[in-house]
Design a protein around this nucleic acid. Structure first.
Lengths: 225, 225
DNA sequence: CTTCAACAATCAGGATACGCATAGTCAGTG
DNA sequence: CACTGACTATGCGTATCCTGATTGTTGAAG
């Protein structure tokens, strides 16, 4: 999951960033509306958290512009307590939920979970793809009823691919979603981990689990059931 | 265990809160139906206690809306003595049990225990996992018929893990359910307590009681019997 | 058909951050 | 004021992640 934070107050921004870090979400932060618009347009986020009172470009204009550019990820807005007009304006601009400052970190976290869950539309916690099943609440993976032990990063990579089964996912999309902004592009971590996943989940290569689309990315090849 | 209380009468609400505190449950309280709906929707509770006569949004509507949003934790309703219709309506809306006011704290305590136990799929108040058994009503723990003395926090950690046996429970999920509201995130309490549990319950490490899935969480490894 | 460049896979070793043990501090309680 | 239990601080070991070189594969150009 990759999350965008647009918040001008540095302490709050950093607090949110560290909260996202504990959730193992990759996140980018912008300190004003302009920068927010740039990042929000440039990258494909899973969620954005936007303060309404921003320098250079205010929150609801930012949201309007993002929506106008067909950026459809869920947006959570932050408002000062009691600013009814702002809140309503933000929601009308295209935000999905709001939170009034100050808030408890727990509250923010819960909202984010709810938005992400709603966005992905996954009701059950067990995803089945033929012989492979992924229990997202237990964070365990099985092949033919036998558990396959995955590390945290392997697990994240697999679920991202599986949740976009049938689609070509480029390596850069994967790194973008699994890592925070500043990540060394010319590394081959993804290849390494895809290799590990293939070895662990399909050592004989009979499933054709993850195929390589040269120049395009990887594709998870089992249908969801 | 994390519990939600929705009750408009302040004295009663606080009485219940302090009762929950003595039980070492983390709990949040709401004074009206709206707030109750918000909290109940956004957080993952283990149980909710809801008064039927509430301002802004009445109890049974609240329950209906929670259930409609797939919030499946057990709900205990509180009714004034003799309000048959209300009680029935509440149960039909999706409550699991009721209690008529005024009630003895003991009675509330017993009902809560029963509901939590039932929710985790255990009929009796003694949970058995191989050589480990947990008596949830007496809050005592045994290994091979010998009692193991646990402190209250150790006990809570153990029961939460045991009630979700087989699942990887992240440290943040543990803190969410064991502590109320905000809690300092970069602390290693959980690690310390898991360490103590292992030492007390399985000093030789023969049971493989709680395993660590680096980056994913902890897992209680004994099957329920 | 062969060659070549670009891209991908593999492997092993090093760096890092995660989790653990231990000990120490602090707060509450009798 | 001693005692217990909750939490913090520190250093250490190691699983996990990342790197870079090497080997393998692909597809287009000659």
């Amino acid at each position: 999951m990759r999350i965008l934070i647009v918040e001008d107050e540095k302490p709050l921004r950093e607090q949110i960033q560290s909260l996202m870090a504990t959730e193992k979400y990759a996140c980018d932060a912008a300190a004003d509306g302009r920068e927010g618009l740039f990042l929000g347009t440039e990258y494909d986020y899973d969620l954005a958290i936007i303060d309404l009172g921003l320098p250079l470009l205010d929150g609801s204009s930012l949201i309007k512009q993002l929506r106008a550019k067909a950026r459809n990820y869920p947006i959570l807005i932050l408002t000062a307590r009691g600013n009814w007009q702002d809140k309503v304006e933000g929601l009308e601009a295209g935000a999905d939920d709001y939170l009034t400052k100050p808030f408890h970190p727990e509250e923010l976290r819960a909202r984010i979970h709810a938005l992400l869950r709603r966005a992905s539309g996954h009701a059950s916690s067990v995803l089945r793809y033929g012989p492979i099943s992924i229990d997202t609440s237990a964070k365990r993976v099985f092949r033919d009823e036998a558990e396959v032990e995955l590390t945290s990063f392997e697990y994240n990579t697999l679920t991202y691919l599986a949740m976009h089964a049938g689609k070509n996912i480029s390596k850069s999309e994967l790194t973008e979603h699994l890592y925070a902004q500043d990540y060394d592009r010319d590394s081959n971590v993804i290849e390494v981990f895809v290799g590990r996943l293939r070895k662990k989940l399909d050592p004989e290569g009979t499933l054709n689990l993850i195929t390589t689309q040269r120049g395009l990315g990887y594709r998870f090849n089992l249908d969801k059931q």
